[in-house]
């Protein structure tokens, strides 16, 4: 499946998951093993979490919850579906789900990029804090809830209550939006936004694949309580 032979292969059918994660955590900037391949993940939770080095980890199959959580610098590619909270609290690096992602993909993530080839279900990018998320399919309800910064790009449709209580995260949806959450509005798509979107699509390997003018932009109307200067004295 992979053009380049991996340096290390872990078969989780025969090796405990903890050994894989420990080995990944022990990797240093000087380690020779840069490419890792994980077989038979079989829906296990917390596969390849807490990586802190620029390694590449390819996982052959479906994973459970929190895969690549807290990721920093590493590239984690999941050749399958991911359960809840894939790349949750990611700091940097790149996480690519080749199948579908379950709820809360990229939740609270501070940086890096998460790409989902299929659909992501509810609460995609909930409380996102700087991550860039690109979903080639559609996303479920309550996505980008309380999103603070970063971008969420959706080539398909969005479910109910998109961007509820949004702060400064930037949302781009090509398809339909079932409904917008509280204080989330459609905004004008100016050249600078098109440029930003093009840049995110390029980073996700989608340069030229879709026309940026097909997207609509959504953001915060900044009308909720926390945006009013009159309420500042309450703190």
């Amino acid at each position: 499946m992979n053009a380049i032979a991996p340096d290390v292969t872990f078969d989780l059918a025969t090796t405990p998951l903890r050994e894989l994660n420990e080995a990944l955590h022990k990797a240093t900037a000087e380690s020779n093993a840069r490419r890792w391949r994980v077989l038979n993940p079989n829906g296990r939770h917390a596969v390849a979490v807490g990586l802190a080095m620029p390694l590449t980890v390819e996982i052959e199959g479906n994973v459970g919850y929190y895969c690549a959580g807290m990721n920093a610098e590493a590239s984690v590619i999941i050749h399958g579906n991911a359960g809840q909270g894939v790349a949750e609290n990611m700091m940097s690096g790149f996480v690519h789900v080749r199948g579908d992602a379950s709820q809360s993909a990229g939740a609270t993530a501070h940086g890096g990029m998460l790409v989902v080839d299929g659909n992501a279900s509810a609460r995609c990018g909930i409380s996102m804090k700087g991550v860039d998320i690109v979903v080639k399919g559609s996303i479920g309800h309550m996505s980008a809830f309380m999103g603070q910064s970063g971008s969420l790009v959706v080539l398909g449709d969005a479910g109910e209550a998109l961007g509820d209580s949004l702060y400064e995260a930037k949302l781009f949806v090509r398809g339909t939006v079932k409904s917008l959450g509280a204080d989330c509005i459609e905004k004008e798509m100016r050249d600078e936004h098109k440029a930003l979107l093009a840049q995110k699509l390029k980073a996700a390997g989608l340069e030229g694949a879709v026309d940026v003018s097909e997207f609509k932009r959504y953001g915060s109307a900044r009308q909720l309580y926390n945006f009013h200067v009159d309420n500042a004295s309450a703190y």
Binding site: G43, H45, N81, G83
Partner: peptide, 13 residues
């Protein structure tokens, strides 16, 4: 409830 429960089914891959 989780995918883990399904992994031993025939042809699951």
């Amino acid at each position: 409830s989780e995918y883990r429960a399904l992994v031993d089914l025939p042809g699951i891959a």
